[in-house]
Design a protein around this nucleic acid. Structure first.
Lengths: 76, 76
DNA sequence: CTGTGACTGCTAGTCCGTG
DNA sequence: CCACGGACTAGCAGTCACA
C-alpha cells in the first residue's frame, strides 16, 4: 500500500502502546481486535476505518486528536 | 449503521465546509471523492477510512485533530 | 512477542440517476 | 444544492497458521 500517513499513524499508535508497557496482545484484547490486525496497523499496512481507529484510541485511553496532530502537511 | 461517532464527525465536517462557503460538490472535487459519498459521510452514514478522512481534511485545509478533539468519551 | 501470507464476507467508495 | 436510491468494483475487516 505504501502510504506515509498510515505509517505515521501506525508508528504513533505503537509508541503510545509502548508508553503503557503493553504488548500487541494486550492492546488487541482491550480493543477487541485481532492481534495480527493491530500489528499490521502499526506497520502502516492497513487503511483502517474511523471506527477501528476510535476503538484503538479508546483502548489506549487517548484522544484521536492526540495521534493525529500535525500528521497532515497542510499548505502554509 | 447508526454510529454516534460517525455522526459527530460528519457534522463537524459539514460545519467546517460551510465556514468556507463550499458546496458538497466543491469539497468532493477538491478532495477527489464522489459527491454522493461526501453527503453520506456528513450524515454519518458511512464509516470512512483514514486516508479518505485525510483527503477531506486536506481539502478543507484543516487538521485531522481539529475535527476529532473530544470526539471520544474517555473514562476520566 | 511479533511479522507475514492467505483467505472470505462484507463494506468502502464510484457512478449513474431521481425528486 | 442536497438527500437518497440502485448497481457495481475495489478494498477493508477479521481470522488463522506458521515462522
Amino acid at each position: 500500500m505504501e502510504n506515509d500517513l498510515l505509517k505515521k499513524l501506525g508508528t504513533r499508535i505503537r509508541e503510545k502502546r509502548k508508553t503503557l508497557g503493553w504488548t500487541q496482545e494486550d492492546l488487541a484484547s482491550t480493543a477487541q481486535i485481532d492481534r495480527s490486525y493491530i500489528g499490521s496497523v502499526e506497520r502502516g499496512e492497513r487503511n483502517l476505518t474511523f471506527t477501528v481507529l476510535c476503538q484503538i484510541c479508546t483502548a489506549l485511553d487517548c484522544e484521536v486528536a492526540e495521534l493525529t496532530v500535525g500528521i497532515l502537511e497542510l499548505p502554509q
